[in-house]
Design a protein around this nucleic acid. Structure first.
Lengths: 143, 143
DNA sequence: CTTCGAAGTAACCGTAAAAGTTACATTGTG
DNA sequence: CACAATGTAACTTTTACGGTTACTTCGAAG
């Protein structure tokens, strides 16, 4: 796949859970979310499982099982969602080690690593500006 | 692969070409670059071909064939290299379309698209701060 | 204490993108 | 013409993600 769709799906799932609750349809299930995302419920459970580990949602089992947000929408930023996903680095080093006998081969990774760290931080800073409440507002505004 | 190693390899190739020229070893070939990157020369030719299309390097054929930078190192930023590569988007939408009959399914992409556009711009802005001269300096400093 | 609906999870399959490889045509200077 | 290296098509390999199946676990309700 080109790029990573997980942040999109995570934002979709979380806003769906909240909207579902607001319109009084009861606890959201992975099957319900999957029906809106158009994917398999297991994919949703895997993704929400990581959100739960990060403290963004709670899951309930047994009767009336399903998912609820752990905090209000306006208190969750896309940065937190992004970090909950534990995404792979945006930029990778060489697939197989470069020629370390060459000055460039041995020096390029130490030179690029801090650059990539700053870029990743810039991404997180940008994502930190948007809350799930912003997302839900824009979702509803697009109709 | 996790993340995209092309920017790493591109920066590696360009700094190698310049260092090779500076130490008077003649025109850089894709085979020479590949030996430092530890990959196949065709991979390097494909990548440098896109750099050439973007005006960052010149390629010569015939006798004394090879690659040279089109501009001084300090006039080429990592942003230009990144854009020359034409990388896939950092964040993707759903692999298959969400359920458009659902308010969230129909609204999530319009809501996320501008967020991703801002994030991509933040990445480019950060990459614009670093020139290939900075990279070469740090490469040599790491020894 | 059984039932039942949904979470949790392991294991596997399918697919797509990138990297690697081979092979060969093209170029352009000596 | 010889040559060395680029240009490029076509194919294979690798890898990661998403999708799928199947099964276990949970826990409130009846």
């Amino acid at each position: 796949m080109a790029g990573n769709s997980q942040l999109t799906v995570a934002a979709h799932a979380l806003t769906w859970i909240e909207l579902h609750r607001r319109i009084g349809e009861g606890t959201a299930t992975s099957e319900g979310v999957a029906g809106s995302v158009n994917t398999n419920p297991v994919v949703i459970r895997r993704l929400l499982g990581r959100m739960r580990d990060a403290g963004l949602v709670h899951s309930r089992r047994g009767a009336d099982a399903g998912w609820v947000l752990a905090r209000p929408l306006e208190d969750i930023t896309l940065r937190e969602v992004y970090e909950a996903i534990e995404p792979p680095p945006l930029f990778a080093m060489h697939r197989s080690d470069p020629n370390l006998g060459c000055p460039v081969g041995s020096g390029i990774q130490p030179a690029m690593r801090p650059v990539y760290a700053r870029v990743e931080e810039a991404v997180r800073t940008e994502l930190d500006r948007i809350t799930l409440a912003d997302v839900l507002r824009d979702v509803l505004a697009s109709r």
